[in-house]
Design a protein around this nucleic acid. Sequence first.
DNA 1: CGCCGCATTGACGTTCGTCAAGTCTAGTGG
DNA 2: CCACTAGACTTGACGAACGTCAATGCGGCG
Lengths: 266, 266
Amino acid sequence: MLENTLKSKSGVAHSSIAIQAVEGSVDMQPHSIKVACSNCNLRELCMPLGLTPAELDRIDDVVASRRKVKRGATLFRNGEKFTSLYAIRTGFFKTCVASEDGRDQVTGFQMAGEIVGLDGIVNDHHTCDAVALEDAEVCVMPFDRVEELSREVNSLQRHVHKIMSREIVRENGVMLLLGSMRAEERLAAFLLNLVQRLHARGFSQSELILRMTREEIGSYLGLKLETVSRTFSKFVEEGIVEVKQRHVRILSTDALKDIVNPKVCN
Amino acid sequence: MLENTLKSKSGVAHSSIAIQAVEGSVDMQPHSIKVACSNCNLRELCMPLGLTPAELDRIDDVVASRRKVKRGATLFRNGEKFTSLYAIRTGFFKTCVASEDGRDQVTGFQMAGEIVGLDGIVNDHHTCDAVALEDAEVCVMPFDRVEELSREVNSLQRHVHKIMSREIVRENGVMLLLGSMRAEERLAAFLLNLVQRLHARGFSQSELILRMTREEIGSYLGLKLETVSRTFSKFVEEGIVEVKQRHVRILSTDALKDIVNPKVCN
DNA sequence: CGCCGCATTGACGTTCGTCAAGTCTAGTGG
DNA sequence: CCACTAGACTTGACGAACGTCAATGCGGCG
């Protein structure tokens, strides 16, 4: 079932699998199409905390349906009409923008519990592509419904604002990375960020499986794929990580942090 | 009065001056401290269009006060408590983030009618600095008031969402620039963007005064100040622009566009 | 007038991109 | 089951673009 052949005991596992397993034990109906945030185990990631039961009930209405996206397929494309935000339930996405002359840039990688589609609000059309890097499922949240409900449920309103602000802050961080870091620093920051987000979802702090190619990592980090590959090799030589294709084991988180933020002395 | 010594007839003028002039003719009370969006000539830039008179009346309540910021002073700083968004009335700002080891990165330049402070929403604290690059004045919009009002005025709610989405899309564009463009392309894109925004405010399409140093431009574009300077010189040699210190005249917008987006053939 | 910050320019070095060859792995079909 | 292939990855040699360091110029302000 999918490509996860790695020891899931260590916490390194395909996010989809872990989540589906949990879901399976909560919702015993095997092919339930019932959509409900209120008993979704990702709620704490994509929905506000501290809702009253009454509010929780209403929140269920933001999700209209679910949608499956096959690996390699797009959830939405640049130019398409914007109607909904999407909360990722399972799987892994990249978002990328393209310049007119064909160059493109990966602007982010998104995993379970994260929201994509915010770019479409301003012009009613999407300005980037969202591509599934593995088979995925998303919750479709029609934006007019989100707006309607967030007028009534204060904590949802606040939550929507926070999600958008978080994305702005994240992008600020990426700009810092792209504007002022060298290749090693970029890759180290990238790995630390990925593993931290995976850890927040219950996975290992030290092992991860990359769902993207070297070229996609490079695009995100403003590097060529060869440079990404060389930098991985350098980290391996230095004993900081083990790399076997897309399986990465971090041997020294501290060393990575040190690369990102060189200590002045000691 | 300020440092604007350039022919304002050509449309190249200090934004503050032009705006104050207009305001002076609308609001005859010389030192009015009354704050009102409803008769602010920047309304179309920072407020939603198509409001009913009743809505317009309510909208006036989002602005609590105005605040002057001297050149070089900060409107807010990384770490400070977030309370308000700020609409720039006059002047010019930069926002910048810093990494722990001291490097910093300019994340944007903001001019009249633009909103700053969105970064603070997610954690109730600002994550960047906003520094005035010339004497400035902003409208202070307490965020809880914005949220309250946008629950009642749909078009304000929609507007707030659009502003945040616009910022996300803008940053996507900067990521593309930082991740995949060469120095000349970055500077050309930067100039085109600046002049386009100034033009939208009634200034010249071909002349502008840079409010920031070469180093700040470089920080924004992920280049060193020497590279910025050299690239300017190159454009001058090629007859694309005239540069005299911070005064820039664009001689061929098409040439700049061509640099950003190289045509394949013809 | 002289100082100071900003900008320009040159010489040189480093980092990363380019091009190319070769390896590994997973998937396919005989 | 194995050979074949295609795509992803690695590695090396070389060059271009940009950074670094340093000298100099320019303009505004006290």
